[in-house]
Simulated assay, not measured.
Amino acid sequence: MNFNASRNVGQSGGGGGGIRKAKRVSDVAAMGAPSPTPAFSPAPGFNAGYPPAGPPPPYQEGIQLETTQDFVAPSPPPSYGFGFPQSPIASPAQLGSMLQQPIVQDMAYQYGNQLAAQGREVVQREINKYVPVSRLRYYFAVDTRYVLKKLLLIIFPFTHKEWMLKYDQESPVQPRFDLNAPDLYIPSMGYVTYVLLTGFVLGLQHRFSPEQISIQASSALAYIFFEMILYLVTLYITNTSTSLKTLDLLAFSGYKYCAMIGSVLAGLLLGRTGYYCWLFYSSLALSYFLVKTLRVQVLTGSGGPSGGAAPAYGYAAAPAYAENPYADNWAKPAGGGGTKRRVYFLLFVAITQPLLSWWLTYHLVPDAAPPAAR
């Protein structure tokens, strides 16, 4: 309870004058008006210079707000990282400086090389499904000496004695080391020369036009594909197994362009008489060349010395029955099965090549030789 010590001064109460002991009273009104109570400060250190603030909002109770906070500033974009903190976005200047670092450039260079290597492997794998690039390298491994000798062999094959293919272990040697090996360089150059010669002949006869030259080129190419399909279907229907591959047949079919080019040139110089004389001789030479070259690969079947799969480049290894693989000898395949079918196929190829040579060139020869040639 409250008490007032000043009211006890000067009062007598049965004793002498002096300060009496303070008496506790129970009536607050008898003590007079109380002094004002200071305002309640909820927290120590309250600064009385600021006016008392009202009660905070219910959702901010117990949180002291900053009066200098900018509530107009944009809020950060929401994060959709499923609870993970969002990384700050780098500026273009920071990205440029980071890309100029040698470590980053080295990593980007290595990563680019890996992507390029993977892409090159995918492209090569897809191309090899349809075009045997590795085998094409073998058929174009020629030199000038081989080309000259092979052209002389196709035109004058009657003096040649050795027709066997040469092998390096189980794989045939490249054409530039073996004159009897098939190649695709001479057929390709023969096709281009035939198309150019056709345009020249049509120009001399005043029949040249871009449409005509394109027709001649496309028809010659179409007949090549027709031959391939005809030979492969014949082998499949007759159930004839040989060591010949599609590229081998393409190479041997392309050698007829040499006879065709010679026939057209003879027709330009000597007229139809010279054309048919050269066509007759070149047809005999081409048939003889094909029979001598194909008989080993056709008549020996597809088996090798070990009876296994064919070695690289689609060729079969040297026959096991031949004592000297480089000698011009051959024998019937073991068992003798399908020998007649192989002989018929060999004759079929030897006959169709001269016929196609005549079919593709007879319309280019004039009835008479030009006056300058007489």
Score class of each variant (00 low, 15 high):
Q174Y: 02
A217D: 00
K161T: 14
I154D: 06
L152P: 09
E227K: 11
T198R: 04
V173D: 00
T198Y: 07
D168G: 13
L204I: 05
Q169R: 07
P182C: 06
Q169D: 01
L221M: 12
Y191E: 00
A217Q: 00
I186A: 09
S188T: 10
L151I: 14
Y146W: 13
A181M: 05
T198S: 05
L151G: 08
D168Q: 06
I229L: 10
L151E: 07
L197I: 06
A181C: 04
Q212N: 06
Q212W: 06
Y146C: 12
V192R: 02
L230P: 10
S209A: 10
L152A: 14
A222K: 05
D168L: 07
A217R: 00
K149P: 07
L184V: 04
A222M: 03
W163M: 13
L204K: 12
S209N: 12
N180S: 08
F225G: 06
M228S: 08
F225S: 11
K161G: 01
A181P: 00
F177N: 15
Q216K: 10
Y185F: 14
P182R: 12
H160D: 09
A222G: 09
K166I: 15
S218T: 11
L165H: 09
T193L: 12
G199Y: 08
Y194L: 12
L179E: 07
T193H: 06
S188R: 03
I186C: 13
A181W: 07
M228L: 15
E170Y: 00
L202N: 08
G203H: 12
E162L: 11
S219Q: 06
L202K: 14
K166W: 09
V147T: 12
D178V: 09
T159S: 10
L204S: 06
K149T: 15
Y223D: 08
G203D: 06
I213F: 05
H206E: 07
V201L: 12
Y167R: 00
N180Y: 02
A222P: 00
V195C: 13
R176P: 03
Q169Y: 02
A217S: 01
V195S: 02
L153H: 05
A220D: 12
I154A: 13
F225I: 12
I213E: 09
E227N: 13
F208P: 07
A217L: 11
Q205D: 00
L204D: 05
D178K: 13
I224Q: 11
A217W: 08
Q205E: 15
F200L: 10
M189N: 01
L230Q: 08
L230D: 04
M228Y: 13
L202D: 11
S214I: 14
V192H: 13
K149Y: 07
P210A: 15
H206R: 11
G203A: 15
F156Y: 04
Q169S: 13
T198F: 03
I155S: 08
M164A: 12
S171Q: 10
P210C: 05
T159P: 03
V147N: 04
Q216R: 15
I224H: 05
E162M: 01
R176D: 03
S214K: 10
Y194E: 04
R207F: 01
A220I: 09
K161D: 14
